[in-house]
């Protein structure tokens, strides 16, 4: 039997990680599998990826995927700032940040919004289950009003919708998905990897241990019954000519991505235009009112400049510059001192 290789001739095992220690059935493990598949199928060399995380169940997952990539399991809510520094050092790496709803929507809110504001070139995945799993199931700030986890009062506070927030901040790529929707999630994560700029993907990822009862809006059962898909996304890599791809029968819209890949959004119900921020916010709002989850590529804008572009950093990643390129010459110091002395 021959082992299947990707376009850079690596087996999928080169993209796998250690066995997961999360609870069996955890949505996060499904997402890890999707990340492995997406990176492998996109043919990104593992050493060109850096996986970043904060603290929490979700943030443990970088141990379980991409074992040949460097990674940093940082501090609670601080993944964005560490990624920012690392990205300035080496802007050519593909940064995949994994965070949770506690890590992003509470303790890390400041860093989340500022990473978006700067349009840091990274994939930002939130594995969003509505509870703090690692500290035994406390509600997080994304849990919906009226949602109730097992053996608890229902939540009465308004939720923070991270996608709506990202859209309001002008985020260049905003998507919502579900850990159980493997095809959609794979297409979106692949597209996010092909995007230049920050790509926020808020993934509903049920916590099977503390909040998988039907009264909880992020349980498997509830999401399956109450998901509204904006479209059916398909990722077409840059190395596959579009004519070779099956053209779907119905309506579709193509999104051109930075690396030449295409994200094809097949219409499933009403037409949806991901370049329309107002439509995106309306869709999120409607879903909230209807106690539904809207999934798909909510918003996309390819025109924005990334942080490293704004800073006009040297073409060579800073980490690859020689000591001589990093230190001004003796003559430069002599000139400076002469100027001070004049």
């Amino acid at each position: 039997m021959t082992i299947k290789l990707n376009i850079i001739e690596l087996p999928k095992s080169d993209y796998q990680g250690k066995p997961s220690s999360l609870c069996p059935g955890c949505g996060h493990d499904q997402i890890s599998t999707v990340i492995i598949n997406a990176a492998w199928e996109n043919g990104i060399p593992p050493e060109r990826i850096a996986k970043m995380s904060g603290i929490g169940c979700s943030s443990k997952t970088p141990a379980y995927f991409l074992g040949k990539s460097h990674g940093f399991n940082t501090l609670h809510g601080r993944m964005p700032s560490v990624t920012t520094g690392a990205c300035m050092a080496n802007k050519e790496l593909c940064f995949i940040g994994v965070s949770g709803d506690g890590d992003t929507a509470s303790i890390g809110m400041g860093q989340f919004v500022h990473a978006i504001r700067r349009n840091l070139n990274m994939v930002y995945i939130i594995e969003n289950n509505g509870v703090y799993g690692l500290t035994k199931g406390q509600y997080s700030a994304t849990v919906e009003k009226g949602s109730r986890k097992r053996k608890a009062e229902e939540n009465r506070q308004n939720p923070i919708d991270l996608c709506a927030m990202a859209i309001n901040l002008g985020c260049s790529f905003v998507a919502r998905s579900f850990s159980g929707s493997k095809k959609q999630l794979t297409a979106l994560i692949k597209a996010a990897m092909s995007h230049r700029g920050i790509a926020v993907i808020d993934v509903i990822s049920p916590c099977v241990t503390f909040a998988n009862n039907e009264e909880f809006f992020r349980s498997y059962g509830y999401v399956k019954d109450n998901e509204t898909e904006l479209h059916s996304p398909d990722y077409i890599p840059h190395h596959t000519p579009v004519e070779e791809v099956d053209i779907p029968a119905g309506e579709y819209q193509d999104i051109e991505l930075f690396d030449g890949a295409t994200l094809r959004l097949e219409t499933v119900g009403n037409e949806y235009d991901p370049s329309d921020a107002m439509a995106a916010l309306a869709a999120i709002h409607k879903a909230e009112v209807d106690k539904m989850h809207v999934t798909g590529l909510l918003y996309f804008d390819a025109e924005q400049r990334t942080l490293d572009e704004e800073l006009t950093l040297s073409d060579t990643p800073l980490v690859d510059l020689s000591d001589d390129e990093l230190r001004p010459s003796e003559q430069a110091l002599a000139d400076l001192l002469a100027e001070f002395r004049s």
């Binding site: 850096a50 940093f72 940082t74 501090l75 601080r78 964005p80 700032s81 560490v82 990624t83 920012t84 520094g85 690392a86 990205c87 300035m88 050092a89 080496n90 790496l93 400041g110 860093q111 500022h114 980490v319």
Partner: peptide, 14 residues
């Protein structure tokens, strides 16, 4: 917090 995080991220990346 973020200022320090960026320093650590950059130092980690070389």
């Amino acid at each position: 917090l973020a200022a320090a995080g960026m320093v650590v991220g950059a130092g980690w990346a070389g």
